[in-house]
Design a binder for these strands. Structure first.
Lengths: 149, 149
DNA sequence: GGGTTTGTTCATTTTGAATTGAACAATACC
DNA sequence: GGTATTGTTCAATTCAAAATGAACAAACCC
């Protein structure tokens, strides 16, 4: 099972430890502590801590607080809606935004081009790029909607 | 500009050389030969050859044949529809399929579980996983449709 | 306060994927 | 045929991202 998730997160560009952690939590009926993860997966405390942080940011795990013990225990959040939302927010949007910044700088660079024929070609290509990015932004909410049902 | 594409392909889990090659072709008014890529990008012949192959498989470049010279020259294909289609076909579908195989093996493994309570829990989780995969397969054609306009 | 448990940070190490480059086709041309 | 040109393959190398682990912080208990 864990293997399935390791493959899964790799497709999404996330490290294998994240897949292992989420996979283990996904098939654990009981919440697991950081220490449990370290022992059961054979990974370092550092990896487990980092991995849990990322998963929390993605909204893929929640900690069951309010326990008697002072340890925190983690559970997998299995709502697809939430997972997809977190991934888009944390991984995709930042890239789209930094891409837009760079394209913005390109627009300026092209305006300094002398050769009018070249300038027109570059303008067309940048327009194409901006078109792709618009489409990208359009498709995200649709994906979110379809998956969150 | 090339930087934009390097970032872009990295999000998709492809190596930077692919981003460089596609980026250069994207802003080149004239088709470029393998040798041009090697010189202008400062990458090895091996990288260029491999990268072009992957890009051809993705349908992201086409070679302009029918020239007098025996060299082949490459151009970027800038149809979003085609790019998305190629990516889904070459990168996403294979992973979805191998995932399904693994889940299939899981189903068998769970049926050998003694404890009925555990078995029920595992069944639920596997059902959840299969639900996610169904949704994944559903969303692909929708993405393709939205982006290909 | 001192001691213990739990979790984080971050410099170093490891590992796996990407790149290189040299040997090897394949094709064209004479 | 021989040789030049172009492109591919793949073992060896390089490099960036991930994992480690030790030092550090924070919270808790007595």
């Amino acid at each position: 099972m864990i293997e399935v998730f390791v493959d899964g997160v790799k497709v999404l560009g996330l490290p294998r430890s994240i897949g292992e952690i989420y996979g283990l939590l996904f098939i654990s009926p009981e919440p697991q502590s950081l220490d449990d993860l370290v022992h059961r997966l054979g990974i370092s405390k550092g990896s487990a801590s980092q991995g849990l942080r990322t998963l929390k940011e993605l909204g893929a795990v929640k900690d069951t607080s309010g326990s008697v013990s002072r340890r925190t225990y983690y559970q997998a959040d299995i709502e697809l809606k939430r997972l997809v939302g977190g991934f888009i927010r944390e991984q995709l949007r930042p890239h789209l935004e930094s891409g837009q910044l760079k394209v913005g700088r390109l627009v300026e660079a092209v305006s300094e081009q002398d050769d009018p024929e070249m300038q027109q070609f570059y303008d067309e290509r940048i327009e194409r790029l901006e078109f792709w990015m618009r489409r990208g932004r359009q498709v995200l909410p649709i994906v979110q909607k379809v998956l969150g049902q």
